[in-house]
Amino acid sequence: MGGWAIAVHGGAGVDSRLPEERQAAAKRLLAGCLEIGADALRSGAMAIDVVEMLVRELETDPFFNSGRGSALTARGTVEMEASIMNGPDRRCGAVSGITTVKNPVSLARRVMEFSPHSYLAFQGAEDFAIEQSVGPAMSFDTGIQMNGLPISVYAPETVGCVVVDSTGGCAAATSTGGLMNKKCGRIGDSPLIGAGTYACDLCAVSCTGEGEAIIRATLARDVAAIMEYKGLALQEAVNYAIKERLDGGKAGVIAVSKDGEVAYGFNSNGMFRGCATEDGFMEVGIWE
């Protein structure tokens, strides 16, 4: 093994009634992100830059539940969350309660690089966005449809990306609009380092699914810990974490290792996902 690798996800727990044309649109979006990431990595881009770049793409397109496509709270408002982590030095940044920033993942990276903190939320995060000139601001349509589909058919989900670059450096990023109809102030797993996002010198992991179950399992960190302490390979570690750590919760995981391996797993009804490696392999999928 060796070389660069990318994995992206658009959420686990896909509604089986999702129309075929919407499934095809999701696959096109994920494939397009993989092409962008592959081009960047061929040019020598670092993992941290690529995960931010691809999650920005997914936030900007309204298909998935992040950025422009975010789900609405019980009050019909938007509270976005994101995190990013750089494996080689384990620096990280996270934000919650974001209402107007187009790309929360970029604000999370600003927190990592330009603040003394790892996590900012709600008004403090919005104030920091203004200080950092992160934008542009946006507003949301709070109609009865989500991305052109009736609420009864649409189950929006989180986005994420993991990358290992040609130097063996790993990075991960995750972004979400949270649960549809969630209580205001609810924070899920996506911005929590070790739960929804984790990267270290061994691997990078991004999770999606039932946030409360992922938080209880510290699922992303657990994949890395299983590799480190049990000595399992990447795919084995993902499989073990999904099977043994979720206590009945439904979730999905994407991961890469420093050796250029890529892996994913889920115990839900499908997961929007795709991966690409330096040797030319690429695939996108939704179902088992």
Rank of each mutant, 00 (worst) to 15 (best):
residue 3 G to Q: 00
residue 5 A to K: 00
residue 9 H to S: 07
residue 14 V to H: 02
residue 17 R to V: 08
residue 26 A to I: 05
residue 31 A to K: 06
residue 36 I to T: 14
residue 37 G to K: 02
residue 39 D to S: 08
residue 41 L to N: 03
residue 42 R to E: 12
residue 44 G to D: 07
residue 47 A to W: 00
residue 48 I to A: 06
residue 51 V to W: 00
residue 51 V to F: 06
residue 54 L to N: 09
residue 57 E to P: 02
residue 64 F to W: 03
residue 65 N to D: 14
residue 65 N to S: 09
residue 66 S to V: 12
residue 66 S to L: 06
residue 66 S to A: 15
residue 66 S to M: 09
residue 69 G to M: 04
residue 70 S to T: 15
residue 77 T to M: 02
residue 78 V to Q: 03
residue 78 V to G: 06
residue 79 E to Q: 14
residue 81 E to L: 01
residue 81 E to P: 01
residue 82 A to W: 06
residue 83 S to M: 02
residue 83 S to P: 03
residue 84 I to K: 00
residue 93 G to C: 09
residue 97 G to M: 00
residue 99 T to R: 13
residue 102 K to T: 15
residue 108 A to K: 05
residue 109 R to G: 09
residue 118 S to E: 12
residue 119 Y to E: 13
residue 122 F to I: 10
residue 122 F to H: 12
residue 122 F to K: 08
residue 122 F to V: 13
residue 126 E to S: 14
residue 128 F to G: 15
residue 128 F to P: 14
residue 130 I to S: 11
residue 131 E to T: 13
residue 133 S to M: 07
residue 138 M to H: 11
residue 144 I to N: 13
residue 146 M to V: 14
residue 146 M to Q: 14
residue 147 N to E: 15
residue 149 L to K: 10
residue 151 I to C: 08
residue 156 P to A: 14
residue 158 T to H: 00
residue 161 C to H: 04
residue 166 S to D: 15
residue 166 S to A: 15
residue 171 A to T: 11
residue 172 A to I: 00
residue 175 S to A: 08
residue 175 S to L: 05
residue 182 K to A: 12
residue 183 K to A: 11
residue 183 K to N: 10
residue 185 G to S: 01
residue 187 I to A: 10
residue 187 I to N: 09
residue 188 G to D: 07
residue 191 P to K: 05
residue 192 L to E: 05
residue 196 G to Y: 03
residue 198 Y to C: 07
residue 199 A to F: 01
residue 202 L to G: 07
residue 206 S to H: 05
residue 210 E to K: 01
residue 211 G to W: 00
residue 211 G to L: 01
residue 212 E to A: 13
residue 216 R to M: 09
residue 220 A to E: 02
residue 222 D to E: 13
residue 225 A to L: 13
residue 228 E to V: 03
residue 232 L to N: 06
residue 238 V to M: 03
residue 246 L to V: 07
residue 251 A to H: 08
residue 252 G to D: 11
residue 256 V to K: 00
residue 263 A to G: 08
residue 264 Y to L: 13
residue 270 G to K: 01
residue 270 G to L: 06
residue 271 M to C: 04
residue 272 F to E: 04
residue 273 R to D: 08
residue 273 R to G: 07
residue 277 T to W: 00
residue 279 D to W: 10
residue 280 G to N: 07
residue 287 W to Y: 09
residue 288 E to A: 15
